[in-house]
Amino acid sequence: MTVSNRAARTALIALAVVVSAASVFPVLWMVTSSFKTRDTVTDGRLIPSDVTFQNFVYVFTEVPFARYMWNSFFISAVITVAALLFHSMAAYALARLRFPGREAIFLSIFSTLLISAPVVLIPLFLVARQLGLLDSYAGLIIPAIFNAFGIFLLRQFYLGFPRELEEAAIVDGCGHWRVYWNIVLPMSRPILSALAVFFFLANWNAFVWPLVATSNEDLTVVQLGIASFQSQYGSNWNYILAAATVAALPMLALFFAFQRQIVESIKTSGLK
């Protein structure tokens, strides 16, 4: 390795360290601050914060935060499972089956990526109200299932599949459904795992649509719960940070559990 290559490699490593530190610092600050009490002033003296677990006790006792987390988990899990099933079927049909209008359908689906969420928020609300989906789990789940990015990514993934595997299965008497269920899905685990993390994370952090579609406190999701903390306890940041830490822990655990699948789905086509 030449001197210039070593210098470039050292510079890249230093840049990666700086970027990583800048990314991790807010998370570390949030976690450490969630265990501290608020600074107080008594008789003109500043009393520094102390380490305590009471912030987390307060979060789970004063408000139904466990209910908020269950709502977010249930909604995100159902959306993720349904989206992966329907998206994989649609992507396989668009990648392998030949039927009139296939390219036009794919172009229409892909074009929805150019439309931002605020543009369709009011029409989506009107449709959901007309169908009686407001203030219900169905209203939070059904509109969030469709995702053009998932269909596009899976279609591109299936286009790289060797056709010989499918042709051999068809020769053995398998239909398209059995080929999809017994061959395509098992070989799609890396990219499905990555998409599962992306979908679950996106719906766990959903804020605008749950805010618009629900007014029932029993359907409050975790992000709305944290927002309510900010309005009620704006000066007590220790409670807000404790709630944010609890909400972030499942996402961090999910990422560390599936980080290998995420990297493999991006690095390779999923075939060995």
Results as ranks from 00 to 15, higher is better:
L113H: 03
A169N: 06
G139P: 05
L134G: 04
I122F: 14
I141G: 11
F152L: 06
G160C: 04
S108T: 14
R98N: 12
L114G: 06
L121F: 13
R96V: 11
F152W: 13
R129Q: 10
Q156L: 05
G160T: 14
A90Q: 01
E164G: 02
I170G: 02
F86G: 09
L133V: 06
F125T: 07
Q130Y: 13
D135W: 04
A95R: 00
Y92F: 14
N147R: 13
L124G: 15
S88T: 06
V171G: 06
I170Y: 12
F152N: 05
L85V: 15
E103D: 15
M89L: 15
R102A: 02
L165R: 13
G101N: 05
V119N: 13
G139D: 06
I105A: 13
F86V: 03
L97N: 00
S108F: 14
L140W: 05
E167L: 07
P100T: 01
F149C: 00
A128Q: 11
Y137I: 04
R155V: 02
M89G: 04
I115A: 08
E103N: 14
R163P: 00
L84F: 03
I151T: 06
L94K: 03
F110S: 11
F152C: 02
Y137A: 03
G132L: 06
A138P: 08
I105W: 07
L124W: 02
L126Y: 09
R155G: 03
L140G: 09
P123K: 10
R129F: 00
P143C: 07
I141T: 11
S88C: 01
R96W: 12
F99A: 02
F125A: 08
A91W: 02
I105T: 13
P123G: 09
F161H: 08
L140H: 10
G139F: 09
F152H: 00
A95H: 00
D135H: 06
I170E: 15
P100F: 05
A90G: 08
L131F: 15
P143V: 04
G101A: 03
F99W: 02
I151Q: 03
V120W: 04
R155M: 07
A128L: 05
R102M: 00
